[in-house]
Amino acid sequence: MKKETKGKVVSYNKWGYIFLIPFVTVYVIFQLIPLGSTIINSFFENYRSGLMQVGPNFVGLDNFIKLFSSGDIWVYTANTLIMWVMGFVPQILVSLLLGAWFSDTRLRLKGQRFFKTVIYLPNLIMASAFSMLFFALFSDAGPINDILITIGVLDEPFKFFSHTWSTRTLVAFMNFVMWFGNTTILLMAGMMGIDTSLFEAAEVDGATASQVFFKITLPLLKPILIYVMITSLIGGLQMFDVPQILTNGTGEPMRSSMTLIMYLNKHLFSKNYGMGGALSVFLFVITGILSLIVFKFTGTGESND
């Protein structure tokens, strides 16, 4: 009897492997092999110069040396980080505030469904279409300039896309609008998870709303805040659609809104696979480290298994 059960268990469990076949096959072919060949490419000189194809020749770490000594990469890294910070700081502040309000049982806000629906909406919008819309709205003869002149804020159209900081602000603002709803919902889920008896105890002790927020909510929310921050940073490093469409791929003015992925996209389009490979490896290492931090913090995999 015992033997028979054991035999059955083994024969069932082979189905675990069978059901994993599609995932593993597709993952290996379309993710692991490309990752491997991307890394291999980073050690080869391989580009087109006019009609001449140069390479592929093995050059060791030359691509990396060229990449890091050219200075361009640091400019684009800085651009990416600046625009990420400009979008993330208001995003986390607004999300914390809204999350606290939505989850506050004493406040009992009405129409929460409506507000949550509205703030999450921009997250689902096609980023390229949203950027095209902003480009049209903020263009020199566009409606925003028009409105600002009509109400007397401006005397003549402000060229939003000719100034470094107005372009960056628009990119950051769009990222903010597209992502704060998502962050709010995540933080709110975290706040709802806090033991309500803590709030009740604080209330009995006569704590004010801001005391409760800073002394109870915020410290208990720290793991989720770190999770939100790092995942947002990983997302920020992938920033592409918005600045690409807004500046037509140029990163104008003066390449001040050129992001790392826009730079990668340029290499991919011009088929400079050596430099593109080195840049990809750089991005892979950074996102890999950030992912590990997320992984450690959420402890995924251990508790629910």
Binding site: I29, F30, Q31, I33, P34, L35, G36, S37, T38, N41, T231, I234, L237, Q238, F240, I261, L264, H267, L268, Y273, G276, G277, S280, V281, L283, F284, T287, G288, L290, S291, V294, F295
Partner: peptide
């Protein structure tokens, strides 16, 4: 968390 962009080069060649 690994974004698809970092393997895009190899993906494109494939």
């Amino acid at each position: 968390m690994i974004p698809s962009q970092v393997t895009a080069l190899g993906f494109l060649q494939l």
